[in-house]
């Protein structure tokens, strides 16, 4: 036997191996999803149900505008909270855990490029967040639907005498305009997009910090800076106010390096009845895609040669 005997194997390996395989990425993503599901994360839906039903029952003495608004605020608030927590904690929990438990060894010693592992994990988390948001939305929309019909019936009941068809339709229009409407879906999408960026941030952090707690804390700090940065600029450096070059420089660096998560906050406006044009939704989606790409890339740069 000579060294040439290896050639068939060598060639076979090269031809069999794909530089990027969606099926491998999907295998990792689905595994991540399964793992989280079996960690019983979906129990949170119970908490969510309690919250929105509570919001529904507790505020019956208010005007219907307040009632519908509180229901939407609580729902969107809980959705934002859960989606962000899942994104950050999920990512921080799973990747450092894989490293700590050395589960990563058995994955990376299969013909799996490291970026596929990272992308797979990220997609798994995003999939989980998406599924949770869809489930929460269904609950939220169902409660809202029943509530607005309930409110309509109550309001008609409280009218003196026999209300005319015109009165009823005007009332209905008024109530439903603040109830279930397509615009709410844009709000859910915006919540998802922000959570996706948060997950990508946690991905970057988890590639250089192997401790879960460290990842969570650093990611949360970045998450907060991401929200406050644009405001901090206005806050500390109001327009027209000349400040020290150094402060401006620092503020600039922060704006450059950190994502502006404030951009995704359109839910407040949506609840108060404004609508987000589709072009803006596309912009937000594009921006999210951009962040996912850059952060995946950076985490790969950090992770590619990491000594495990």
């Amino acid at each position: 036997m000579t060294v040439e005997n290896n050639e068939p194997i060598y060639n076979e390996l090269n031809s069999k191996f794909k530089l990027f395989s969606p099926s491998r990425v999907m295998a990792i993503a689905m595994n991540t999803f399964t793992q989280l599901v079996r960690m019983k994360v979906f129990y949170f839906l119970l908490i969510f149900s309690v919250l929105i039903i509570g919001a529904n029952v507790l505020f019956l003495n208010f005007t219907f505008e307040q009632e519908l608004k509180i229901l939407q605020d609580v729902s969107f608030g809980a959705m934002t909270l859960f989606a962000s927590i899942f994104s950050i904690v999920g990512t921080a929990l799973l990747i450092p855990k894989d490293i700590e438990d050395r589960t990563l060894y058995s994955i990376l010693t299969k013909p799996v490029p490291r970026f596929e592992y990272l992308i797979g994990k990220l997609l798994g988390i995003l999939f989980l967040v998406a599924v949770s948001l869809v489930l929460m939305s269904i609950l939220f929309f169902a409660v809202l639907f029943f509530r607005q019909h309930g409110i309509l019936a109550e309001e008609i009941n409280q009218m003196r005498g026999q209300p005319t068809a015109e009165q009823i339709s005007s009332l209905k229009e008024n109530i439903f305009a603040q109830g279930l409407r397509l615009e709410l879906i844009n709000g859910v999408v915006a919540v998802f997009l922000k959570a996706a960026v948060a997950a990508a941030i946690a991905l970057v952090v988890s590639t250089f910090a192997s401790s879960t707690l460290f990842t969570i804390i650093v990611s949360l700090v970045i998450y907060f800076i991401g929200h406050a940065q644009s405001m901090a600029l206005d806050y500390y450096f109001p327009e027209g106010d000349m400040h020290g070059a150094f402060q401006r420089f620092i503020a600039g660096i922060v704006a450059i390096i950190f994502p502006n998560l404030q951009i995704f906050n359109v839910v407040d406006g949506i609840v108060s009845g404004q609508s987000v044009p589709m072009s803006l939704m596309f912009r937000l989606t594009g921006l999210t895609g951009f962040y996912l790409f850059i952060y995946s890339f950076v985490s790969w740069v950090l992770f590619a040669k990491k000594e495990l």
């Binding site: 390996l13 191996f17 050395r102 589960t103 058995s106 013909p111």
Partner: peptide, 17 residues
């Protein structure tokens, strides 16, 4: 990475999902 196509590895004290 392609070289891993011919390798199977059992880590010490393996820990899987």
């Amino acid at each position: 990475t392609a070289s891993r196509g011919s390798v199977g590895f059992l880590p010490e004290n393996p820990y899987f999902y």
